[in-house]
Design a protein around this nucleic acid. Structure first.
Lengths: 115, 115
DNA sequence: ATTCTAATTAGCTAAATAGCTAATTCACAA
DNA sequence: TTGTGAATTAGCTATTTAGCTAATTAGAAT
């Protein structure tokens, strides 16, 4: 799978996104991560493997704990992909602003010929 | 499925992303869209349904054609989701810049006490 | 050595996904 | 009304995914 697909795929699950949000607050062990979820530990473990494979988290080793750390740089790929489309939705926004500006102008010059 | 998961899921396929890229150039009929791909028409049709369901494209109707149009606004959801993490990877970048600045300072004041 | 805790792996099931071919719908044209 | 081109739906298969329980590995502590 290409990297972009892998990242999008990893993010397409609310549990995994919640795990990332949790890790934004700092490193956590697997049991700490699992605590808020109504899901078995192996289930969480699988989700972590998906996130690690996508490069979104990394895991170190401290005694019998395997603390997970967020790797936000892995999101730059999709941020870059978005770039091209950001232009497009801003264009629309610009047109809307133009339209609103025009409406306002019409309001002030009520009765005058249009443009 | 929640909207964010639906969007990410839709984007987690290279064919679907290629379709969006193609539609960034303007509206296209289904056969036009299908042309560059080595895939059956029903296959493409399924991909289009996924994209439409995610709100990433819309379809109108002109005679027997069903032209597809890109709806880039549907990407704002994931752009907003990214926002929180952008902060984090910029932090890292800031730290790197700080570090480089410090290195440079050290270079100029070589031999002096640090900090 | 034994036991406890943290975490993963094995092995299963149910559901979703990607792809195909064949059949169908729909609108226009002859 | 019959035919033609555009697109979807039906129906199938193979693969992947999410989830579980039970079993296993690995380190720390007793």
């Amino acid at each position: 799978m290409d990297p972009l697909s892998t990242t999008f795929q990893a993010l397409a699950d609310p549990t995994r996104r919640a795990i990332l949000a949790q890790l934004a607050g700092g490193e956590r062990s697997v049991t700490e991560i699992a605590a808020p979820f109504d899901m078995s530990l192996p289930g969480i473990s699988k989700h972590l493997k998906v996130l690690e494979h996508a490069g979104l988290i990394s895991r170190s080793r401290a005694a019998q704990w395997r603390p997970c750390k967020l790797e936000p740089e892995a999101l730059r790929g999709i941020d870059g992909w978005l770039e091209e489309y950001r232009r497009l939705w801003n264009q629309r926004l610009d047109r809307l602003e133009d339209y609103l500006a025009e409406l306002q102008a019409k309001g002030k010059k009520r009765g005058r010929a249009r443009k």
